Simulated scan of single mutants.
Amino acid sequence: MWLVFEQPLNEKIRNYLRIESVCAQLDAHQGFPYPGSELAFFRSLFELAELLERADLRTDVGKDLERQRQQLQLWRPLPDVDQQQLDAFEHQLDSLQQQLQQMTRPTQLIKSDRFLAALRQRLTIPGGYGSFDLPQLHFWLASEPASKTQQAQRWRQRLTPITEAVALLLNMLRETGRWQEQIAMGGSYQASSEQELDLLRVKLKQTYGVYPTISAHRSRFTIHLINNETGKADNRNLPLHLCLSMENR
């Protein structure tokens, strides 16, 4: 089994990856597959709302969508380009841009919901979700499963335009890189790039029993492999796969 570790090389991509990670948790709990998943869903929802409240996020996402749209126009005259695929991407970009323009504050509807506002305040307190703290939560937990799922979907959909845009931008960023095999000599690997990087991905076999710690700048990086059992540097010569991705500028 291969494990992929990602290292963002600027604050914007770091925020995008955090949003993606919380969205994955939120969607995993949305159907309430096990007892207690409701609380996990609400915690993930509030984490996502906090990430989306950054003042510069919508500006960054809007600029990135427009930059990708312009890049598609540069690809169109090239030979052997799949025009239908470009059309599909362009339609998706246009749709997301329109939805973002129609949004005011992405989390406003979440914050104005009285039920969610009460939960958000109390869930910051350790153990603050008892029936004496949140009787409205215990009333809601007793609702029909289908009703709870539909309500969760409505809350989630309020944030969909911006989270879908982030997911698309990350997917397109990852596609700019190609995997290459390297050797970490003595458990370390160091390299530099002529172009400024935005995302570094490292792929390792789980059977090696190591994970990477990465020190990176926009044009250079160092990878040290750490033994999972000892927590110390692993000095073996081990193969790893690298993927260096950068935005279209």
Rank of each mutant, 00 (worst) to 15 (best):
S131P: 07
A233C: 01
S147K: 13
E90F: 08
R178G: 03
F32T: 03
L137P: 02
N248M: 08
L78Q: 14
E90R: 10
D60A: 15
A152M: 05
G31L: 09
K203T: 08
R54F: 03
Q136R: 06
L65M: 06
L39A: 13
R120E: 10
L57M: 06
E66I: 12
N227T: 10
R158I: 09
L168A: 02
L109R: 11
I13T: 13
P126F: 08
R156Q: 11
Q73A: 10
A165Q: 04
R18C: 04
L238S: 09
D133C: 05
E20H: 12
F41S: 04
M1G: 13
L141Q: 14
A191Y: 05
M185F: 12
D94E: 13
K63T: 10
F5Y: 15
T222M: 08
E38F: 07
Q85G: 12
D60C: 12
G36W: 04
M1H: 11
D27M: 07
L65S: 04
L9M: 14
N227S: 14
R220E: 15
S44H: 05
A165F: 01
A118S: 14
R174S: 06
W75N: 09
V22E: 01
L141R: 14
A142D: 14
D133T: 06
L3S: 12
K12D: 14
R156D: 07
